[in-house]
Design a protein around this nucleic acid. Structure first.
Lengths: 148, 148
DNA sequence: GTAGCTGAGTTCGAAAATCGAACGCAAGGG
DNA sequence: CCCTTGCGTTCGATTTTCGAACTCAGCTAC
């Protein structure tokens, strides 16, 4: 069972985990959510090798997480990479990573950038909740039932 | 800037992303949250090569996401890998992946296992919210401010 | 038109990560 | 003793990644 076979496993956790668990993919998505959209800019800000960048972008295009949209600059038509709705929906994943990082991987008062709710200025936090009773859940509160 | 240097970047999103963005790490964590605790069981259920499994477990031990705890079986002392508090706090990350997978990567009615709130039976969902006004947030609702 | 520039890749040999199969080893059990 | 089990380690082959050079298309300037 090679790594790639998790991509087609009948498990809605394995498949995303295998996709985003490829080297560079999560960092690439971070950059995209921060507004980077062009090949050269990804390459410059992350210093990823060009061939791997090409590959990762293509995988995300194929998975329909990104789309290429044309734009004009200096009268020339170029393309940029933008999130699809599916891609934008990954926001909670990135925010969960950051919420965890803030709690467990922030050495001091360090903070590279701050996020706040545009409307009320409050802090942003990822959490798991019950769709019925709206309680916040931890792993202990959740029961796993085998496939039916 | 090699991949590994993101592990020491002053960004609370980059560091977790670089750690969990290593091949196998997310899948390994999935398995741990599902209850796998022993070397042989990881190896058998994921079919990861033993040397890489050793490496990933060691990284997670070093990062204090996992701990080795002794236990007894047939009168022998062995060790198993268990989540620390820091590790258990990764639950929202995994649930965010799953929530996304349920929405965007579930072909049909397929579901490998079901999760529900132990108390009320409701469904489990990851979301991003404002700590002030408790509104659910998307990327558009969040303002990014540069480091201060 | 042709030389140059720029963004976006592609190519290719070297280096690093992963694989799989075999080996090591310590703690019991028979 | 010798066998089994759990947990690794080692090592040569394969796959990924790296980094630097190369390509190519569409302008712009001369």
């Amino acid at each position: 069972m090679p790594y790639s076979s998790f991509a087609s496993m009948p498990c809605t956790l394995s498949r995303p985990a295998a996709l985003l668990g490829e080297r560079w993919t999560l960092l690439l998505l971070r950059q995209i959510f921060l507004g980077t959209r062009r090949f050269e800019d990804f390459q410059a800000t992350m210093d990823i090798s060009r061939s791997v960048l090409t590959d990762r972008l293509n995988v995300l295009l194929q998975e329909n997480v990104l789309k290429r949209v044309p734009y004009h600059e200096d009268g020339r038509t170029r393309h940029e990479y933008r999130l699809t709705e599916k891609g934008r929906d990954l926001y909670p994943v990135l925010m969960a990573l950051r919420t965890w990082g803030e709690k467990w991987m922030a050495p001091e008062e360090e903070e590279s950038f701050h996020l706040h709710h545009r409307d009320c200025g409050g802090d942003v936090r990822a959490k798991v909740e019950c769709t019925e009773c709206a309680a916040e859940l931890t792993a202990r509160d959740v029961q796993v039932t085998a496939k039916r």
